[in-house]
C-alpha cells in the first residue's frame, strides 16, 4: 500500500484517465445508441436491418477485438486519430486515447441501443396510438411521447451498461493508455511485495466510481418514479 501512498499523484492521474475515458465515451455512446435505436424501430427496412446487424455483430465481439480493430485495421482505412492532440495540465489526449474512446463508444452504444429498445417495448401500446391519433409524425411520436417514457423504463439497464463501461475502460490498458489498470500493473511490477495492497487501492478507486454512478442512477430512478 505504501507504494500507492508514495506515488499518490500517479495513482490519481491514472484514475483521471479512467474517468476521462468513461465520461467521453459514456456521453458519445448514449448519443450513438439513441441514434441506433431510432434506426431499429423506424419505418425504413434497410436501416432497421443495418442497425440490427451492427448490434448483433458488435455485441458478440470481445471488446479486445474492437480495440484491435482501431489499433491495427483502422489505420489502413485512414482512421488514425493522429489529429487528436490535446493537452490539459499534464494530461495528454492523443491518438491512443482517441482510438480507445472510439472503441469503447462503438462497443457500448450497441448495449445502450438494446437497453433503450427494451424501454421502448415497455411503453404501453396506447401511448403511441394516442400520439398517432392526434396526428404526430414518426419523429414526433418518438421524441415527444415514446422516448421520454422509454428512457425512464430503461434507466436501470442503462445504468448497468454505463457501469460496465467504467469497468471496460480497463481494456484501454492493453492498448497503451496509461489509465488505472495499466498503472496498477506498473506498480505491481515495481513493488511486487506489496501487490495485495496495490490491488486493494486500485479496486477501491474503481468501486468509488461505480458506487457514485449507481447512487446517481438510484436517486434519478426514485425522482422519476415519483413523477409518474
Amino acid at each position: 500500500m505504501e507504494a500507492v501512498f508514495d506515488n499518490v499523484d500517479a495513482y490519481l492521474k491514472a484514475f483521471g484517465y479512467t474517468l476521462a475515458l468513461f465520461l467521453v465515451s459514456g456521453v458519445l455512446s448514449m448519443v450513438l445508441g439513441t441514434f441506433l435505436v431510432a434506426l431499429r424501430v423506424g419505418p425504413i427496412a434497410v436501416l432497421r436491418w443495418a442497425g440490427a446487424t451492427y448490434v448483433t455483430l458488435v455485441r458478440n465481439t470481445p471488446l479486445v477485438i474492437v480495440f484491435a480493430f482501431f489499433s491495427f485495421a483502422a489505420p489502413t482505412l485512414g482512421i488514425r486519430f493522429t489529429w487528436l492532440d490535446v493537452h490539459i495540465d499534464d494530461y495528454d489526449f492523443t491518438a491512443l486515447f482517441g482510438a480507445a474512446v472510439a472503441s469503447l463508444t462503438l462497443y457500448t452504444s450497441s448495449f445502450v441501443c438494446e437497453a433503450l429498445r427494451a424501454g421502448v417495448n415497455a411503453v404501453p401500446l396506447g401511448q403511441a396510438e394516442a400520439a398517432r391519433a392526434i396526428g404526430l409524425p414518426f419523429s414526433g411520436v418518438m421524441s415527444q411521447v415514446v422516448l421520454p417514457q422509454a428512457l425512464r423504463a430503461s434507466l436501470p439497464p442503462l445504468a448497468s451498461v454505463q457501469i460496465a463501461l467504467i469497468k471496460n475502460t480497463s481494456v484501454a490498458a492493453v492498448f497503451g493508455v496509461a489509465e488505472a489498470t495499466a498503472q496498477m500493473r506498473g506498480f505491481t511490477n515495481d513493488f511486487s511485495s506489496q501487490r495485495l495492497g496495490i490491488f486493494v487501492a486500485f479496486a477501491i478507486g474503481y468501486i468509488v466510481i461505480v458506487e457514485v454512478v449507481s447512487l446517481l442512477s438510484a436517486s434519478l430512478e426514485r425522482r422519476w418514479r415519483a413523477a409518474t
Binding site: 475502460t169 489498470t181 496498477m184
Partner: peptide, 18 residues
C-alpha cells in the same frame, strides 16, 4: 459487491502476479 464492481482485467493482473 466487491467482485462485481472491480474490472475483470484488474483481477486478472492481480491473480497473475499472485
Amino acid at each position: 459487491e466487491f467482485f462485481r464492481a472491480v474490472p475483470v482485467l484488474l483481477l486478472m493482473v492481480f491473480t497473475w502476479y499472485f
